[in-house]
Design a binder for these strands. Structure first.
Lengths: 325, 325
DNA sequence: CTGAAAGCGCTAACAG
DNA sequence: CTGTTAGCGCTTTCAG
C-alpha cells in the first residue's frame, strides 16, 4: 500500500504539498506540481478514502434508497439509478445502496457518516420517511413530490402537467371520450406521488376541455387487456386511451390493433421514449425522461451538499417524444 | 456528533472498553457491558465508519458492478441485486454501486480501500475484466461463469444443466422437434456466459435424446413473435418451444394461444418462477432463482473476504417451479 | 477483567 | 510558494 508519505518522499516535498496538489486548495508552482504528479503516477498512488473522510468529514458518497416493490416499473427505476450514478461519477462521487423501505437504514448510514447525502426514490404522497428525513443531519433529495415536503429538496417529472398535456392533445385531436390507464393497483393504493398527480392533471384538463374522462389502475403484463375490455364495455364511445404503464403498453396496443370488436382507439403513452416509440399501435408518446430525472436528482443532491441549494421542488416539464428519435 | 470518548466518559470506562464491548473481542464483565450499552443507547451513539475503517483497514462494504446494458433483463438484475443487498445487510455489510462496464472503476474502489470485495454481474464467456480482477488486491466473486476463471470465485445458476433438463423433459413428453428461443441478439453476440451454456446443454441433451432441436436468439417485447413465425415456417413440425427470455414470454404465449395457423405448441420457460408461472399458455417453468443467486454471490464474497473460501465455482442446480407457488 | 497510548493516512490550520 | 504539526475517531497492542 502506498501512502501520501511515500509520494511526498519520492517527490522530495512535504505531505501537505502532495495533499494540496490533489485538492487544488492552494497554489503550487508548476515544477513542484509536476514532480508530485509524476511521483503519484509512478507509485500508482490512490488516496485512502477512509483517511480522507476521517480528516475532512466528508465521504464523496451519496446514499440511494431505491424501491424494489410490487408494481414498480423496474425499467424506470433502473434508468433513474443509471442517471444518478452517471451524474455522481461525473462529479467524483460514488453511490451506496440503502435498503428500501427502511427509514432506519438511511439514518444509520447518515449517522455513521457513510454518506454526504441521500437520494430517495418512489416517494408516496404522504410518505412516512419525509418527517424522518427532515430531522436528518445530512442533505436529502426526494425524487417524487410528497404533500408535506416544505423543508426538502424535491425533483420530479411534472406528472400533473403531463396529465394536462395529454388531455389537451386528445381534445385537439377531436376525441370526446377518453380514459387514463395508469399504474398498477398496488401502486395507486399506496398513493405513490406520481400516480395521484397524473390523474389529477388529466381529469382536470379533460373536464376543462369538455372531454368525458375516466381514470383506472392498470395491471402490468397480459392482465392489462381485461381493463381495456372493461373500459370499452362500460364506455363504448371511448376513442382514445392515455396509458401510463410501460409493462402494459404492448398488450394494450396488441389488443386494440385491428380489433374487429371496437372502433379505432388511439393510444397516447407516457413512458420512456425508447420503450414506447416502437410499440406498434402507439400513436403518440409523452417522454418520461427517467435517466435525466436521476441525473437531476443527483445534481440537486450535490448542490444541496455544497450548500448552493435550499428546499424547493424542481419539476421537469413534459414534452412529446420525437418520433424520429 | 457523539464519539466513543463521550460514551466512555458517560459509562465511566476507558474508550478501549467501549470498543471491546462493540466488537466482542475480549471478555467484559456483565456489569460493565451493561453500563456501556446503556450509555451508547442514551447518547444514541453510532461509530464513525471512516474512523473504524482507517484503524481496522476494513470497510464492511461490498462493491457491486451491475450491468445496465442493451438486452439484459432488468427484472433479473434487480432481483439479483435485491438478493445480494439483503444478504449483505444480514451480515452488517453495505453495498457500493460501481459503474458498469468499467474495470477501472472496480480497481479505483479497491485501491482507495472503499470496499472489502467486489461482486461482478453479467460476466461474458471471455470477459476482459477477469484478468484484471485476478490481479486485484481484494476478493472478487463473479456471478456468471467465464472460460478462464480458474483463480476466481464464481457463483451461477447451472444453465447448462437447465438446458439438459429442458431437453429431457420435452423428450419425455413425446416431442420430436423443438426449439430454444433464448436471450436477445445483443446478449448472444456478446457471448454472455449464461446464454452460451444454456444453448450447449440444450442442444447436446436434445441430440442425445434423439430430438431435432434448434436454438435462436429472441428479441424482447413484441418482436418475439416474428421469431416464432420464422421457426414455425422453417420447421412446421415444431411442437415445443423452450423460452429463456422473460420479456418475450407473454408475447410468444399470446401468439400461440389457440392460433389457428399452427398445431398445438407447448411452451417451457426458463424464468424467475413468479414472472412466468401465471403467463397463460406456459405449461412448465424451470425457475431462475435470481434473488437466491444474488444472495449466494454475496455470501460467497463474504466468505472469500473472511478467508474461508477459495477459488472455484458454485452452481445452483435447476428445478422445475412448483405450479402452486 | 480493564486502561493508556500508539498509530491508521489524511486534511487543514499555523508558521514561515 | 512550501513545511510542520495537531488532530479526525477508532482499533489494538502493551501493561497492568
Amino acid at each position: 500500500m502506498t501512502t501520501i508519505a511515500d509520494v511526498a518522499q519520492a517527490a522530495g516535498v512535504s505531505i501537505s504539498t502532495v495533499s494540496y496538489v490533489m485538492s487544488g486548495k492552494r497554489t503550487i508552482s508548476q515544477e513542484t506540481r509536476e514532480r508530485v504528479e509524476r511521483a503519484m503516477a509512478d507509485l500508482s498512488y490512490s488516496p485512502q478514502a477512509s483517511a480522507r473522510s476521517l480528516a475532512s468529514r466528508s465521504t464523496s458518497v451519496l446514499g440511494l434508497q431505491a424501491p424494489i416493490r410490487a408494481g414498480v416499473d423496474v425499467h424506470v427505476v433502473m434508468q433513474i439509478v443509471a442517471g444518478a450514478l452517471k451524474e455522481a461519477r461525473a462529479h467524483h462521487h460514488d453511490i451506496l445502496l440503502l435498503t428500501s423501505d427502511d427509514a432506519a437504514g438511511v439514518e444509520r448510514a447518515a449517522r455513521a457518516g457513510m454518506v454526504d447525502g441521500v437520494l430517495i426514490l418512489d416517494v408516496e404522497t404522504s410518505d412516512p420517511r419525509v418527517g424522518a428525513l427532515a430531522e436528518l443531519s445530512i442533505p436529502a433529495v426526494l425524487i417524487g413530490l410528497p404533500d408535506a415536503a416544505d423543508d426538502l429538496v424535491c425533483v420530479d417529472f411534472d406528472f400533473e402537467a403531463a396529465g394536462r398535456l395529454a388531455a389537451q392533445r386528445l381534445a385537439e385531436r377531436g376525441h370526446q371520450s377518453v380514459a387514463l390507464l395508469g399504474a398498477p393497483p398496488q401502486v395507486q393504493a399506496r398513493h405513490t406521488s406520481y400516480s395521484d398527480r397524473l390523474m389529477r392533471g388529466f381529469l382536470a384538463a379533460s373536464e376543462a376541455a369538455g372531454l368525458t374522462a375516466r381514470a383506472l389502475p392498470c395491471p402490468s403484463g397480459p392482465g392489462a387487456t381485461e381493463v381495456v375490455d372493461a373500459v370499452l364495455a362500460e364506455s363504448p364511445d371511448t376513442t382514445a386511451l392515455f396509458v401510463h404503464n410501460e409493462a402494459a403498453l404492448p398488450f394494450i396496443a396488441a389488443r386494440l390493433m385491428g380489433a374487429a370488436d371496437t372502433g379505432p382507439v388511439e393510444i397516447l403513452a407516457l413512458s420512456p421514449a425508447e420503450l414506447a416509440l416502437h410499440v406498434p399501435g402507439v400513436s403518440d408518446v409523452i417522454d418520461l425522461p427517467a435517466e435525466t430525472l436521476g441525473a437531476r436528482g443527483a445534481r440537486a443532491l450535490l448542490d444541496a451538499i455544497g450548500g448552493t441549494r435550499g428546499p424547493g421542488a424542481e419539476l421537469i416539464a413534459p414534452r412529446f417524444a420525437d418520433p424520429t428519435g
